[in-house]
């Protein structure tokens, strides 16, 4: 895109360089700006904290590999909380790429807390066509997922004892980078009344607020910032918290760039008019 215009080449690349600096420097020097926990994230934390031990939580990895830097810290924080509270965690994915990510995350965090596969957590695997899969789980989980991710019969695992459908599930955490968390609201919350916890990319944050106000979702954890807040609540510094300083400087850079760009525009316009 730069080859056709020599002058563009410079400005554009200078801005790219500024962006890289704005992100790299805070990551190296770590000023450690104070972090505020929002009510939306606190609500999720309180809800999970209030669940009785052994409650079943479904965590659905409804994202693609493209948003991993946002989704992984989020899933890690929520999983740590669930395992710390001794909840039973059932993993699944409604997008194919979330499948491998989900399996790896569950095993890694499960091992951190010495949890047994099949006893304390399980990974059911992937199902296509979100709305249909969500509805099917509302009727009979063992019919929807006859086998786990690697093909072993699901009914053989102790965690599945007494787990039939959403009636036995305390909450569904949807770690999503698109509109699948909305599908969970539309099809699982509305129809079956199950509690939905959206852990989503920042891109989708504003679209979830109407459901927050109408209490169709428990709370809202959005983006790397949401993950950082959760890490703070768990008293554990992770990738998200360490990224927050860079997030701040990069935002300031963007705002400054918009301001300069507009000032230049108004100057030029003013010049033309006079």
């Amino acid at each position: 895109m730069a080859e056709a215009n020599g002058k563009r080449f410079h400005t554009r690349h200078l801005i790219f360089l500024l962006m890289a600096i704005a992100v790299v420097l805070p990551l190296i020097f770590k000023p450690g700006l104070p972090l505020r926990v929002t009510k939306e994230v606190q609500d999720i934390y309180d809800y999970i904290e209030g669940l009785p031990e052994e409650s079943v939580v479904i965590i659905s990895f409804d994202h693609e590999a493209s948003s991993l830097p946002e989704m992984v810290p989020m899933a890690e924080a929520l999983l740590r909380h669930c395992f710390r509270k001794n909840l039973k965690v059932c993993g699944m994915a409604l997008l194919a790429e979330g499948t491998s990510v989900g399996d790896a995350n569950l095993r890694r965090i499960g091992a951190e807390y010495n949890k047994e596969y099949g006893e304390d957590y399980i990974f059911w695997g992937f199902r296509p066509q979100h709305e249909v899969a969500i509805l099917a789980l509302g009727e009979d989980i063992t019919r929807e997922f006859k086998t786990d991710y690697t093909g072993r019969p699901i009914s053989g695992f102790p965690i599945m004892q007494g787990l039939r459908n959403y009636q036995n599930v305390a909450a569904v955490i949807s770690v999503g980078d698109g509109d699948i968390p909305i599908y969970w609201v539309n099809y699982a919350q509305a129809r079956y009344g199950v509690n939905i916890i959206p852990a989503i990319t920042a891109v989708m944050a504003t679209t979830m607020y109407p459901f927050l106000q109408s209490e169709q979702i428990v709370g809202l954890a959005a983006g790397l910032k949401g993950a950082a807040e959760y890490e703070k609540l768990l008293n554990r510094t992770g990738l998200a918290t360490r990224g927050m300083d860079a997030q701040s400087t990069a935002h300031v850079l963007i705002i400054v760039l918009i301001a300069i760009g507009n000032i230049i525009m108004f100057r030029q316009r003013g010049g033309k008019r006079s």
Binding site: P69, E70, A202, V203, A222, G223, L239
Partner: peptide, 22 residues
């Protein structure tokens, strides 16, 4: 606000990749 949050998301992705590289 969607604009603001979208910018935030894109930057988070970059932060993640820089964390990986460095």
């Amino acid at each position: 606000s969607t604009f603001g949050y979208t910018v935030m998301a894109r930057i988070s992705l970059l932060i993640g990749r820089i964390q990986f590289l460095l």
